[in-house]
Write a protein that binds this DNA or RNA. Structure first.
Lengths: 178, 178
DNA sequence: ATTAATCTTGACCTTTTTGTCAGCAAAGGA
DNA sequence: TCCTTTGCTGACAAAAAGGTCAAGATTAAT
């Protein structure tokens, strides 16, 4: 289970846009992000493009151009950002394509795996969904306590899910075809 | 956040070895796994090799050869398997390499991200660590209830962690260098 | 108008991951 | 002994991901 570089750096770039914009009140340029993150300008360009296509930032061209958050940092959830930059743990597409001829999962482990990935994704989503960009802008200490608070909330949600027979396990999954 | 094919299929192969061995009492051949999982023989060979190097299966050569679980299915945790097949969410290596010249994270977001990845990994690890191969061998229904039970336990552990200032957030992380 | 600063895009190259192949090694049965 | 069935390995090929580059488009300042 790995993060793509687009997820890792895309999120960092977005955080920098939020951070730099909030102090300078100016649009944040690719050059600035490149400098503070230690990435090439061209590379940052790609990440920031993904962020723009995802609707997280607005761009302004020209001499005083740059990027701004499209919404307040409190209204951007890290989950949405990561989903846009890197996709889900598994794609639902596989489910449809192969279910016709054979019914459920061809592979005879009966897809216990899909239940597993599903609950992993469910758990992670629940956590990330409660974390906003704004939460990540304070110091690392503050954010750490924020994380544990959210994790606590998450647990309660998870217990409710358990009592109601667990929608987190209801999704379909088929593995990629080689 | 994606699973590598080695994680996805390696785990499936291991499950098949456990399943087929338990019914036939014979070593499970690559050919059998290949058939039930719909993968090429050569490909299964690679996955199974990783499993052997990870110490999860033992091999026997020759006419009646094949693979057997190295330990009972109840004593193999899915977390260990996935860690071996795909590695951690982030590697600790980066932390050491770049900390000398600059101190903490160069990248000026102050590495709130590392706290984030850390807690995600912590959460996932806690869940997977409680799931054994054996848990995944029953029907999907049984496994689903197993998962929710384990998730419940996980929550309690997480709360303990919170009360003791959260070791889950204590680890270092630096992003890959481009 | 011209220029300089900025974003935008598509094409290209490099690296990593994934999958295949051919040849070797071991073990059992004829 | 020889042959068949199995696992084992390293080299290769294909595909995906990651990164760079060059040429364009837009805007503000001069």
């Amino acid at each position: 289970m790995k993060l793509s570089t687009q997820e890792e750096y895309g999120l960092r770039c977005l955080l920098q846009i939020a951070r730099l914009e909030s102090t300078s009140k100016q649009p944040v340029t690719i050059g600035e992000i490149s400098r503070v993150e230690g990435l090439s300008v061209a590379n940052v360009g790609k990440f920031v493009r993904a962020l723009r296509l995802g609707g997280f930032v607005d761009s302004e061209r020209g001499h005083t151009g740059g990027y701004r958050l499209a919404r307040p940092a409190t209204e951007i959830s890290v989950r949405d950002v990561l989903d846009t930059l890197g996709g889900k743990l598994f794609d639902a597409e596989f489910c449809e394509e192969h279910s016709g001829a054979i019914g459920a999962c061809t592979h005879s482990v009966e897809c216990s795996v899909r239940s597993l990935w599903n609950s992993v994704q469910f758990l992670v989503d629940r956590l990330l969904n409660q974390i906003s960009l704004h939460d990540m802008l304070g110091g690392e200490r503050e954010f750490a306590s924020c994380l544990t608070e959210r994790a606590e909330g998450l647990l309660q949600v998870a217990e409710v899910e358990r009592d109601s027979a667990g929608p987190s396990l209801a999704h379909e999954h088929h593995p990629p075809t080689p």
